[in-house]
Design a protein around this nucleic acid. Structure first.
Lengths: 168, 168
DNA sequence: TCTTAATTTAGAATTGTTCTAAATAGAGTT
DNA sequence: AACTCTATTTAGAACAATTCTAAATTAAGA
């Protein structure tokens, strides 16, 4: 279900071949690797066409340094404050949107009135725990979808989101 | 994918049997059937344990009289105003939530910052047109899911939502 | 260093939704 | 019908998440 995939026009019931896209995520590093990691993040911003400002670097480090995460603007802002990273809330919003536009993050709509951003940009799905409001990644291949409806003529499927809601 | 369904504990790859639940929706009626329809809606509110007030009746008529619909609070409020139905915005919100709590509507989260309500309460999925923000029902059996991950121990799957996003 | 445009920021504004407290209106007595 | 009791409605205030604005700052290249 890669972005922009078009469904064949007249096929009634096919088996769709689904490929796992491995998302790039920094692993935990030794202190000596720390500068390398920072340059990695800096490079990543630059290649995405985003000026690596102090704020964006700090937020990107929070987001990408330790494996897949799901954040909201407020949660990331809180984390930044706790770590004495000086950024305004507006900048957190700007950065989340800029990162999303450039494909570094993916936005997820689960709850009305709150946007979640996922650092895992590969195709995958989610458990959503209604009790706690937390998300958990579900590997793409653990949900097997063997048929999908055709989109209306001329339309393209951008993405198929599967949200497995865990009772509250 | 009925509500509260518990996945069998140790089964690795089963085919899930999915049943279509036909949702009850009034059909277009001749003028002579109009009173019958109104009493139908009135009865429906009463059985749900909701006092059939003037406002709730009017809103229910807008919602249920003409086949499956997707509304937001604002869109329903606007429609009511256009039809000279006197209700306050707060009442629209109250009614949508009351109807949802009593199982007459289902709430859908697609976009951050906006709740959609669906008059089709049977299990089904959705196309979401990013360009227009509109929703379209997708029959349950046109999406075949042949495997799902197990929820964490002790947790129950409340529902599986599939949203097929049509590129904007 | 200088210039320029991108970015950040505080705070105001906006949007969608919920809350509050007073007024109204069903529904069941009498 | 009048009376009572509680649910419902309502306007407007309050709230939460997000976006906007316009001025200050900063990255990046000449």
């Amino acid at each position: 279900m890669a972005n922009g995939l078009v469904w064949p026009a007249k096929q009634a019931k096919s088996v769709y071949h689904i490929f796992v896209i491995v998302t790039r995520h920094s692993q935990a590093m030794s202190p000596t690797q720390s500068k390398a990691r920072d340059t990695g993040i800096l490079e990543r911003l630059r290649t995405a066409g985003l000026r690596p400002t102090r704020q964006r670097l700090a937020l990107a480090k929070l987001l990408f340094a330790h494996g897949p995460r799901h954040v909201t603007a407020e949660s990331l802002f809180g984390e930044a404050k706790a770590k004495r990273v000086n950024v305004s809330l507006a900048t957190v919003y700007n950065a989340l949107h800029d990162f999303t536009d450039k494909g570094l993050l993916r936005e997820i709509s689960i709850e009305a009135n709150r946007s979640y951003f996922d650092t895992n940009i590969g195709d995958h799905h989610h458990f959503y725990f209604e009790r706690t409001g937390k998300l958990q990644d579900v590997a793409l291949d653990s949900v097997r979808i063997t048929s999908l409806p055709h989109p209306p003529a001329g339309e393209k499927i951008a993405r198929v989101d599967v949200i497995i809601r865990i009772a509250g």
